[in-house]
Amino acid sequence: MATILVVDDVALDRHLAGTLLEEHSGWSAVYADDGREALSLIKLKVPDLVLTDLQMPEMNGLELVEAIRRDYAHVPVILMTAHGSEDIAVAALKLGAASYVPKRDLARDLVPTTEKVLGMARVSWNQQQVLDCLVETELRFVLSNDPHHVQPLISHLQDHMTMMSLVDKGGLIRVGTALHESLINAMEHGNLELSSELRESEDIEAYRGLVETRRHLPPYQARRVLVTARFSRNEAVFVVQDDGVASTRPNCQTQRIRPIWENRAAAASS
């Protein structure tokens, strides 16, 4: 049984949407006149899905989507759009609304769109249930010295941290910045033996040219960067090792990230 909260200040639209949904086996509809009433109802009983108009008094659909994404992130939102609400619909989709149905097409598209979104939400919920059982995982990457691989790798690691609820948005940015620095350091200063002074010099194009040249030349081209990422309930640990000359600088850096519930996403280098 799925409960769908229909939010619209126009009684006819509420009735049409609610009737179409309730004709589907296993679905029931509850109703709110605007975003504020919708949030009050959600507080009392969280629905499986919210279907909302965009232009409403008190609290409009955009503000409602924002509040739901913030406080009830697992509840998907479908927008009902009308002529003139295109801009606000785009903004709501960017904020995380799952889909939209033009009001003129409710009879044709509402049920299939709702089925699709509820299906995706169930898969996502089940995945989260499995992830909640994950206690530890370790990933290992062996990178050549191509700087283009740095950002995709960081994004991948950030996704893992998000999945395991280890850091908040601010923490993700800090981790990303620290990892970027470590990886570039390992590639360019470790494996390619380019000095920090040269990097900070005014001629950045010449420096980039040198990176490009050296990474294809022996002995540098055979050198690799080994990245180990270990995620657990208590922390995330990143170890970045390069094959550079260890006598001139440390060629292993470790970053340890504490989870958000300890309220200290501290990074320490060793």
């Binding site: 009684a11 006819l12 009735h15 049409l16 009737t19 009001k103 003129r104 409710l106 009879a107 044709r108």
Partner: peptide, 22 residues
């Protein structure tokens, strides 16, 4: 009629509600 998918029963409900609302 497009808006109610060509369904007379739904259209009748909507018209009734329109009278009531206005």
């Amino acid at each position: 009629m497009d808006r109610v998918g060509g369904r007379v029963d739904l259209l009748k409900q909507m018209v009734g509600l329109f009278f009531k609302e206005t």
